[in-house]
Write a protein that binds this DNA or RNA. Structure first.
Length: 833
RNA sequence: GCGAGAGUGGCGGAAAUGGUAGACGCACUGGACUUAGGAUCCAGCGGUUAGUCCGUGGGGGUUCGACUCCCCCCUCUCGCACCA
């Protein structure tokens, strides 16, 4: 017996159980001829509880998965856990337990939370990246990449976070602060493992074009920016009195004649030699120490004073043959280009400021066409293109030409080379942490660095260890872990104790989802071919650079290891906006967190899902409102009540019922027209535009129309059928959004196959066509009247009616009609003078 | 500074290709039903008037007609930033 009151708790549990028993969302590629569709949401870190951002992300993904299924696709929709990471270590220390324990506990709690939301995941594909069955393959990739030369170890100045006690990748440093804990990052020298992502810079950049139809412009531009390609030259300058040359990178070789001094990064490798005979050596060393000791942030802070020191040496400008004093300058970065800059003060603002401070010559070599700047008084460098002057044989030519001609000239002399430079650096994946995938390398005193043999993988993370309370990784002191035998010479050796950056795990999990239990290989080749690339990827904009760039790189690197011929991981990307409360991101410190569990127990999962999708379109930020969510709850109650009220007259006729319109009454046609039009709009909004808010609005309109027409229609057979069809359409459209209540009402209406397996109906275009339509009449483009006329009215008749309209008459009387514009079925515009 | 996105009622937001601005919802107002209602139902709801006029950040322009297209400007958000 049906309850008359809407009880979300009861029905949600009921349907979740049914879906699970029936394995309704199990994805198999065997014996399935349907086209495949892979929809994936960014998997969560198992922090303990899901938050509203997850709910929004996964609700969007679930609508996509469910609509695609209804559309006849074989949908893969998996979920898993990005399970390595520092918080587990901190929690383990605090609770005197093992990070694995904390992590798996969180996973089981959060899995239940997700299940309570009714997402249509294929839980049989679930994976956790901290499981040896997962990271084993990551270790294999590491070794294969090492053997291919795409992994290397080098001593490098690294970003060290003193709070997290680990190294951070450049991408993980935001304005000089640790991305995770906002601590000021320090510079340190450490030997680290790097992935050669910079080898793929050009391909990563070029392939962004392939993504331009499926990815947001914003993300593409951020990635382009990050890769930072610039074209220019490397130019050699010989140092006077030393058999050395300094190589610079410049994009403005056309200004070479204006290069009047040289700026080096204080850490530049030639510096010791350059200053070795300088009597003021000590003060120069002091300068270097001072600058090097500066925090990264301080050194590159906006408006930081230009500072430098003269080395006492000169180099020679190869085209003017003039002496250029060599300076060390605080603003020159060792990491970019060659760590050396030819200074052209007239045409570079930084160089101009530096020249002003140290009284160095300014020589104008590019002029705008109209005016001539004065090198004595200029305060802003002229950086635009212009005409070359003071540039020998290149004079009077436009700089764009000079660019090429100087490049040719320097190349012919062998002192310069055209060069493309990228801002993208290699990816440092070493972390001095415990809770991560161990880097599978062995240090042998005789043989050096040797990979762990493949048949010894995985290098297991010890499960019986205790976390040192100071937060350091226990691995270096854990002899049972560290002690190894050299695979090459069998001598006692030591294991690498660094673990991998957790972004490595998330760089390939989407592929593992296609065959997550496979034990003899990372991927099932057939499954890869079948499912990949991900058709629709959904997640937060905060991953626009880090995660998405790494994943793209991994796909290309694994392609080069022979795993697939895939070029890109994610064909389409949807970046959803943040969930805000009181205009700000939810956070514990602000005390504006809305707890999903609490909302679910108050209103039910369907209401929470509905609100998340209705309050704004997916890409925009969503402002959480405790008041507005009640509106969503009210709507579901209305849907429930109306369906029950109509119970005596409704029957399972199917959505968008095909009927012969000629035999219907006016009201019947009206409702039927709304129904089919709503179906049309919902199809467009949900399937093509991912604008669920307007699709929901359409469903609400249809329910309003049912309510409005119900008394007139429920007394006869065809009216009842129209009502039943309209209600069925409401349920069908809303099924992907609020699946539990729709399933319940669907079965209540008498359907005996579940809505989750129903087909997305086709609407009847003719049903939408109305017999009488409203045509707007304008005079000089201003709305003056409107007419209710037959849809098939003849144009001449429409003009006649428009001109005869009394309200129109008033506006055109005594004036000359210049023009009469008729837009069929829309409007008439009378232009008078 | 460079790149991207966005400015529409009290609020969240609608308006494919230029063609009734404000769909849908929240809040609010009035009414009905009720012992009561913060439940539900019905009606109203951009501003302003006597029929009007004004309204999509501001200013120009194109057009019979502009939230939509073009130019200039302002504001906000995000990303990058002493990148040579």
């Amino acid at each position: 017996m049906q309850e008359s009151r809407y009880n979300p708790g009861r029905i949600e549990q009921k349907w979740q159980k049914k879906w699970e028993e029936q394995q309704a969302f199990y994805a198999s590629r065997e014996k399935d001829s349907r086209p495949e569709y892979y929809v994936l949401e960014m998997f969560p870190y198992p922090s303990g509880r899901i938050h509203m951002g997850h709910v929004r992300n996964y609700s969007i993904g679930d609508v996509v998965a469910r609509t695609k299924r209804m559309q006849g696709f074989n949908v893969l929709h998996p979920m898993g856990w990005d399970a390595f990471g520092l918080p587990a270590e901190n929690a383990a220390i605090k609770n005197k337990t093992h990070p694995a324990h904390w992590t798996y506990q969180n996973i089981s709690y959060m899995r239940e939370e997700l299940k309570r939301l009714g997402y249509s995941y294929d839980w049989s594909k679930e994976l956790a990246t901290c499981h040896p069955g997962y990271y084993k393959w990551e270790q294999l990739f590491f070794i294969e990449l090492y053997e291919k030369g795409l992994v290397y170890r080098k001593k490098a100045p690294v970003n060290w976070c003193p709070t997290c006690l680990t190294v951070l990748a450049n991408e993980q440093v935001e304005a000089g602060l640790c991305w995770r804990c906002d601590t000021m990052v320090e510079n340190r020298e450490l030997s680290q493992w790097f992935l050669r992502i910079s080898d793929y810079a050009e391909e990563l950049l070029a392939d962004l074009d392939k993504l331009s139809t499926g990815w947001p412009e914003r993300v593409i531009s951020m990635q382009k920016n990050w890769i930072g390609k610039s074209r220019g030259m490397e130019i050699d300058f010989s140092v006077q009195g030393l058999d050395r040359k300094i190589t610079v990178f410049t994009t403005r070789q056309d200004t070479l004649f204006g290069a009047t001094f040289m700026s080096l990064a204080p850490e530049h490798e030639l510096v010791p030699e350059l200053i070795s005979e300088n009597p003021a050596k000590d003060s120069i060393l002091d300068f270097i120490d001072r600058i090097s000791a500066q925090e990264q942030e301080e050194r590159i802070a906006e408006g930081a004073e230009k500072e430098g020191v003269f080395t006492g040496r000169y180099c020679v400008n190869p085209v003017t043959n003039e002496q250029m004093p060599i300076y060390l300058a605080n603003f020159v970065l060792l990491e970019y280009g060659t760590g050396a800059v030819m200074a052209v003060p007239a045409h570079d603002q930084r160089d101009l400021e530096f020249a002003g401070k140290y009284d160095l010559p300014v020589r104008i070599v590019v002029q705008p066409e109209e005016s001539v700047p004065d090198s004595e008084t200029m305060s802003h460098a002229f950086t635009e293109p212009g005409i070359a002057v003071n540039s020998g044989q290149f004079d009077s030519k436009p700089t764009s030409i000079v660019q090429e001609e100087i490049a040719d000239y320097l190349e012919s002399l062998g002192i310069g080379r055209r060069k493309v430079n990228y801002r993208l650096r290699d990816w440092n994946i070493s972390r001095q942490r415990f809770w991560g995938a161990p880097i599978p390398m062995i240090y042998c005193p005789q043989c050096g660095i040797v990979p762990t043999p493949r048949d010894e993988l995985p290098v297991l993370l010890p499960e019986d260890t205790e976390m040192p309370p100071d937060g350091r990784s226990p691995l270096p002191e854990l002899e049972s872990f560290v002690q190894a035998t050299c695979p090459r010479c069998a001598a006692p050796a030591r294991r690498e104790t660094d673990t991998m950056d957790t972004f490595v795990e998330s760089s390939w999990y989407f592929a593992r989802f296609t065959s997550p239990r496979r034990e003899d290989a990372p991927f099932d080749a057939g499954a890869i071919k079948h499912w990949l690339p991900v058709d629709q990827y959904i997640g937060g904009i905060e991953h626009a650079i880090l995660h998405l760039l790494y994943a793209r790189f991994f796909v290309k690197a694994l392609r080069d290891l022979g795993y697939w011929d895939l070029k890109e991981p994610f064909a389409n990307l949807l970046t959803q906006g943040m969930v805000l409360k009181d205009g700000a991101k939810m956070s514990k410190s602000k005390g504006n967190v809305v707890d999903p569990d609490e909302m679910i127990s108050r209103f039910g999962a369907d209401t929470v899902r509905l609100y998340c999708l209705f309050a704004s379109p997916p890409e925009k930020d969503l402002e959480w409102s405790d008041q507005a969510i009640e509106g969503s709850y009210r709507f579901l109650n209305r849907l429930w009540r109306l369906t029950h009220d109509l119970f005596p007259v409704i029957s399972p006729v199917g959505p968008c019922l095909k009927m012969n319109s000629d035999e219907l009454s006016f009201e019947e046609k009206e409702l039927r027209a709304v129904e089919h039009d709503v179906m049309r709009r919902a199809t467009r909004d949900m399937l093509e535009r991912f604008q669920f808010n307007t699709a929901i609005a359409a469903a609400m309109e249809l329910l309003n129309a049912v309510n409005q027409h119900k008394d007139a229609l429920k007394s006869n057979k065809s009216g009842q059928q129209i009502l039943s069809s309209a209600l069925s359409t409401v349920l069908t459209v809303l099924a992907p959004i609020v699946p539990h209540i729709c399933e319940e009402l669907w079965s209540f209406m008498g359907y005996n196959t579940p809505l989750s397996a129903a087909r997305w109906p086709a609407y009847d275009f003719q049903a939408i066509e109305k017999e009488k339509i409203t045509v707007v009449i304008q005079v000089n483009g201003k709305l003056r009247s409107s007419l209710n006329v037959p849809a098939d009215i003849d144009e001449e008749e429409l003009k006649r009616l428009a001109l005869a309209d009394s309200r129109i008459q008033k506006h055109i009387q005594g004036k000359t009609m210049v023009k009469l514009i008729v837009i069929p079925k829309k409007l008439v515009n009378i232009v008078v003078r």
